[in-house]
Design a protein around this nucleic acid. Structure first.
Lengths: 356, 356
DNA sequence: CTGAAAGCGCTTACAG
DNA sequence: CTGAAAGCGCTTACAG
């Protein structure tokens, strides 16, 4: 049974109290705690016993005020409700915890000004640094980075002033599209490009480029009617995109979805329409969230090591916190195609096949 | 373009700087910020302009040190990777943000001592309070609650010393089981009870009781072979439970899963086994995560308002932070059956039907 | 409605 | 290796 701190009524013990009980100065207690200076073994023991018996817990606000570090980092994602967000949050909390850091989560998609606010006000919550997955590139905080607290970006941001961790989205999309073509698909719809995004700038642009490159390599003419824009990368948007495609009477035999969430929504909508995967349509996603493996049918996707991903981000952030003048670094995390049942056959296709 | 705080090199402006520029005392700046005392309109304007031009951002560590509040709450769940966790985290961050609070997330399942640590050390991270979904009831922190920082529990904990928010799990499980029976199911397997849990104590015990009550009400003899224990409430565990049931040769025509995640895993495993839902087997879950609606087929589940749930928890926590001597309150959040395709037909059942 | 003083609990120089 | 002093940036009494 672990020791529990004194209750609400009891006044909380301070370093001074510990020092008094141990018969040393507060500085020595501090030394025992931080290990910043050597403390002789007997002294250390006495101090530790005093801390035990008083239930002493250091006050992070005081420490933070004094030395400017709180041991808390911010983690900001567009939408915390997605499976991918859950996967990443789970991973970062684990890794941060091993390093004695706590994680403050934030969500940016709900409010267009939220990214700015977060970075601008990061220090308000006494955050040592921020790991951010930016969504609004054009007017993103990244443009002001020289003025900002330590920030590491995660995702495919073509911008070189900031530390960042990314997956080779363009290559991955190209490889996945090639896989679909190899399986016999010819009319591959792509779900997730967002209107107004300059190709190549953000993740969706890069993935779109990879898709187009693969089509070109196979001599397939791209069809704008097969490029479905969405507002958010949600399950719902994936389902809606399939219904839209179907309502428009577009012929298609495969779906390349820019996230697993959208792919899961697509699987549901296809099922509702009475279409079978992979018999009629192949479906592929991105991210390899746990739900992908357990989709019906299992979802082919682009996978990467989520723990490695957040570990790289945290490494960069800690490096940046310690030394602000280092050159920005961009760390790629390896990806691989994970082929499951959703692309395990040649598709018959749906819609007007004379257009194939 | 929002104002951005001065960079790392530039020294951060303090209240004192603002006061100097505005020609007032620091106290007046503080008053403008907190609204604790009336400030005349012209004075306020001058101060606000000074804050603007200096890019002033209050230092929460200092504020926290001074008045004991940081505006940060802890949110601790067993497993952040689940869909339900994502749903709740999304909701609490939204609601907390509206109230000017930030959320520090924690995960407890990885380490049996983590719940204790969290509560015991809550103040270390300068958290004003903690919202906790406890998993280890017997030796849970709740037993020491008189000594603890403000804590609100979420989930079905039969314990009356702490504020808590809950769903009527027993009634919900009974209603869902009745629904399955009404649809024609007779051999209903239940997935999610954990070994060694005293019935009625924790969520799984309550749900098991509700299930048994419904069987009894319908005159169906419970079969221990249909009660599958799992270690964690994950997708994987749901899939494994179905495979286990199948390998054991148990006849069953419905699955009552204690979470949607497990139900999603079950749907996948049934599909792998070539079984159709709802034609062969009915499947029901709990929680109504977004994935449930978009499952293949859409998953019947127990739904409740997730925002209302976390709002109630936050209300209780804020009340508790403000006044520690109040009597503990237990707030039920209404639930309802959400019937989707996974229970939309009478099941044929699988396995040795002579046992039905 | 506003100001000058004190102190929240730590840690960083500075001495010994 | 340890101590006494000062101060991080706020806000709470206490005066005016």
């Amino acid at each position: 049974m672990p020791h529990i701190t004194p209750g609400a009524g009891a006044k909380r013990a301070t370093m001074k109290d510990v020092a008094a009980l141990a018969g040393v100065s507060p500085k020595t207690v501090s030394n025992v705690l931080t290990g910043s200076a050597g403390v002789r073994e007997p002294t250390r023991r006495v101090v530790e016993e005093a801390m035990q018996s008083l239930g002493y817990v250091p006050n992070l606000s005081a420490r933070g005020l004094r030395n400017g570090r709180t041991g808390v980092i911010g983690f900001a994602l567009p939408d915390l409700a997605t499976a991918f967000s859950a996967t990443l949050t789970h991973a970062i909390v684990q890794v941060a915890h091993e390093r004695g850091l706590a994680v403050l989560v934030e969500e940016t998609a709900a409010d267009p000004t939220r990214e700015h606010q977060l970075v601008a006000r990061a220090r308000e919550h006494s955050i040592d640094g921020l790991i951010l997955n930016p969504v609004r590139l054009e007017d993103s905080v990244v443009e002001y980075l020289e003025h900002l607290p330590p920030v590491v970006l995660i995702g495919e941001v073509e911008q070189y002033k900031t530390d960042r961790v990314f997956v080779e989205s363009r290559a991955a999309a190209r490889q996945m599209t090639e896989h679909l073509i190899e399986r016999g698909a010819r009319r591959i719809a792509v779900i997730g490009g967002s209107q107004g995004v300059r190709p190549g700038l953000a993740t969706s642009g890069l993935r779109l480029r990879g898709y187009l490159e693969a089509l070109e390599g196979a001599g397939i003419e791209p069809d704008p009617g097969l490029q479905i824009s969405v507002r958010q990368w949600t399950i719902e948007a994936g389902a809606a995109a399939v219904r839209e495609l179907h309502a428009a009477g577009e012929a298609f035999d495969a779906l390349l979805c820019f996230t697993d969430s959208m792919a899961l929504g697509a699987l549901h909508a296809l099922h509702e329409l009475g279409l079978q995967v992979p018999r009629d349509v192949l479906v592929a996603g991105f991210d390899d969230v746990e739900h992908a493996r357990y989709a019906v049918p299992g979802l082919t996707t682009v996978g990467f090591d989520h723990v490695a991903y957040v570990t790289a981000a945290l490494d960069l952030l800690q490096r940046r916190i310690d030394g602000r003048d280092l050159a920005a670094q961009a760390v790629p995390v390896p990806h691989r195609l994970i082929v499951r049942d959703s692309t395990s056959a040649s598709p018959a296709g749906v819609g007007d096949s004379s257009r194939n």
